[in-house]
Write a protein that binds this DNA or RNA. Sequence first.
RNA 1: GGCGCUUUCGUCUAGCGGCUAGGACACAUGCCUCUCACGCAUGGAACACGGGUUCGAUUCCCGUAGGCGCUACCA
Length: 535
Amino acid sequence: MIKALLLHDFYKKRNMTERKVRVRFAPSPTGPLHIGGVRTALYNYLFARQHQGDLIFRIEDTDSGRFVPGAEEYILESFRWLGIQFDEGVSFGGDHGPYRQSERREIYKQYVKQLLDDGKAYYAFDTPEELDAKRAEIENFQYDASTRMQMRNSLTLSADEVQQMIEAGTPYVVRILIQPGRDVVVNDLIRGKVCINSSILDDKVLYKSADQLPTYHLANIVDDHLMEVTHVIRGEEWLPSAPLHVLLYEAFGWSDTMPCFAHLPLLLKPVGNGKLSKRDGDKLGFPVFPLEWHDPKSGEVSSGYREKGYLPQAVVNFLALLGWNPGNEHSEILSMDELIQLFDLEKCSRNGARFDYVKAAWFNHQYLLQQPEEAWAPAFDNILRQNGIESTPQREAEVVRMMKLKVIEYTDNEGNKKKRNISFVSDLWPLTRFFFVAPDHFDREDKFIRKNWNEGTASEMTCFMEKLQTVDDFSAEGLKTVIDPWVEENGLRPWNAWRICLVGAGQGPDMYELAAFLGKEETLRRMQFAISTLG
RNA sequence: GGCGCUUUCGUCUAGCGGCUAGGACACAUGCCUCUCACGCAUGGAACACGGGUUCGAUUCCCGUAGGCGCUACCA
């Protein structure tokens, strides 16, 4: 135990003090960037910044069959929006390129050859059909020490035969030769010492015949080594293959500079079992991608945080706290700079985190309220346009100012009415309609109207209109100075009825503010309409 | 099935042998108030189970059960 701790410290220290911290985010361009990937990238970014290190953007496109056009650009655009900056890599330049694995074929070939020459790997000629047959024949078949001698590979074939087959262009893969019966230790910054016996590992394919490219495992190790990566921060799904990676570093003779590993817990579905998937977003009405994604093949559109009205700071803040926490003494509202300062891999939790989109909305609410009204105007303007309203930025900012602390009611997927803070600018329209459109009918069954409009109300409002006619300064302040004393004097409480006139319902901002916004003419017009309609 | 990781309020989590088990979201109530709210205050709510180790376990160890992941010529 003590030894393990010391070893742990040793690796950590070596990589933190003797070498410049270099980390990477290396997605495959197979589609839009999943929100879990965004968090992984964020943690890499925070770690790099905290240690004055470098963050590398590498594209792992060794599966030519799954390449999706536009995915790379989408990923880059996502990080631009989120404010996660890279120091080198695809589109950023740097001295360790090329950074796209499909452009590094020659490099990998050289290293595959090294492994082959050293007897650390071997050729295998088994066809997919033969492998399937074997899998059918042997339950839980695994290509390893117990089975490899029954297969067609350079361990069972003569050197001449192998030579001939290769020259004849027979398709082959290269497999790592795993020596069974030894414990492989992975030192993980989050999970401590993880120990696995090599006997359960299989002879993983390192080089594929299908597309003449290495597999992830080989490319990853070669690139991390060549790019001088010091810390590998990635999702937990890689933990089972980490021992293979350790063995590969060993096989290459790179154990001395092997990076530290940190395997992050996964993001889980908000409800039910399993990890967060694209479907959950569709089902529960929240995005699982940073940006809206238009699938080039199916034409399907997946919603994005940006388009839903989330602020990038809110997404970053929310995501940072999903699986990591700086402790009790800190507020949960943290800027990027604060996150960089506080981030600590060893404070990452080890268990999967359910994705709580209600809390995500709360974070957005917080950041939205921090913004000046003017910042809402462009998004709000869009909404008004969609509803056929022409306005001006000043008027919109004014509405936003008045509405900033209001809520909306929404219907969730089970059909329940729920209340929610204004979390998105787009939620504003149902609440602000009356600023721009006069009420054209009144719901007599409405509780608020029933309670606040009775026989005497019409004449009271008529009287109130006469008083309003006399107000010269129709600003909120001007109205207040004239109306407040008048109301006091006559013992009136006209606000709720007045609200019905101007809004048509029991909602909205302060009445003086609203009246001032509408102006004297419109205010009186709406009152006249209400009086004649409700009687 | 095999292997690995994991288990504190509904959710995200703090806790690193001795605490009335803390915070945040959500929920409920109250205050505020010209409405809906915001804000503020208060409240309900958790150590999966069973064995050890120990004077003492939420905390350390071992089992059981649950959850998650991996088990491809995908990454």
